[in-house]
């Protein structure tokens, strides 16, 4: 089996797509990367951790689509492996997710105030179950066309995480205020994030839910106001 891997080592001014032969029988892409590192070129850098799809370390682009290396079954030749997009490149397949991680903080995705009276039922738990399955792998940020052009965009996983807390019955102070700028209204609803999520999360759907929740709380689309609100000035 052959793999093409995008290599990048800044201090060596090394930036090329290199083809590797994987002679051993491997199941996953991660095993192939390990094989290459251990037997062919130990300078190849890629992240991994649990090898079971929960730690979120090993997301890369395979043939143009973000995916977890540990969950990607290798079948055919000439797979092209590249680092995630839209994040600063550190080396080879390793990207700097610092900025992406910051978005959940900007979105204040946490429980603000506990409603002590509330009791969560089995049904309530199902409401934000899938959102709380997120492993912060960053695949959705790699896929998101808005994050690509606007680094201030809160982005799919942060908004999913926000919805998780907003939807939580235990939350007495749902925070949607911080999601209005560079947030829910900036999403184009293109659904690219949903297509790549290994946990079957649809950030797009969560963003839509946040929009209606926001509308219910009296917020509206600022882009709409910017486009059509001009004549307010003339009054």
């Amino acid at each position: 089996m052959k793999l093409k891997i995008q290599r990048y080592i800044k201090e060596k001014e090394f930036n090329t797509l290199i083809e590797y032969d994987v002679e051993k029988k491997v199941t996953t892409l991660l095993e192939a990367l390990e094989y290459i590192k251990q037997t062919k070129d130990s300078s190849l850098a890629f992240e991994s951790g649990c090898r079971s799809g929960v730690c979120g370390s090993c997301s890369v682009q395979v043939d143009g689509k973000a995916t977890l290396a540990c969950s990607h079954k290798l079948q055919e030749d000439a797979v092209v492996v590249e680092p995630l997009k839209n994040m600063p490149l550190i080396r080879d397949l390793v990207v700097d997710m610092t900025q992406a991680y910051q978005t959940t903080k900007k979105a204040q995705a946490w429980l603000h105030l506990l409603d002590k009276e509330t009791k969560i039922t089995d049904e309530d738990e199902h409401i934000n179950r899938v959102q709380s399955d997120c492993i912060l792998c960053g695949s959705c940020y790699s896929a998101c066309p808005v994050f690509a052009v606007n680094k201030n965009f809160l982005g799919p996983f942060a908004l999913t995480r926000s919805w998780k807390y907003v939807a939580d019955k235990r939350e007495a102070q749902p925070a949607v205020d911080v999601l209005q700028t560079d947030g829910i209204w900036d999403c184009t609803l293109c659904n690219e994030c949903t297509m790549v999520c290994p946990q079957e999360i649809s950030s797009k759907a969560d963003i839509e839910k946040l929009r209606s929740k926001s509308a219910m709380m009296g917020y509206s689309d600022p882009n709409f106001a910017a486009n059509f609100g001009g004549f307010e000035l003339s009054f």
Binding site: L111, T121, D122, E125, R129, K164, Y165, R170
Partner: peptide, 14 residues
Amino acid sequence: LDSIGVCFSRTPDG
């Protein structure tokens, strides 16, 4: 853990 929002599985009666 429950008070900070961990999504524990629940029994039918909560």
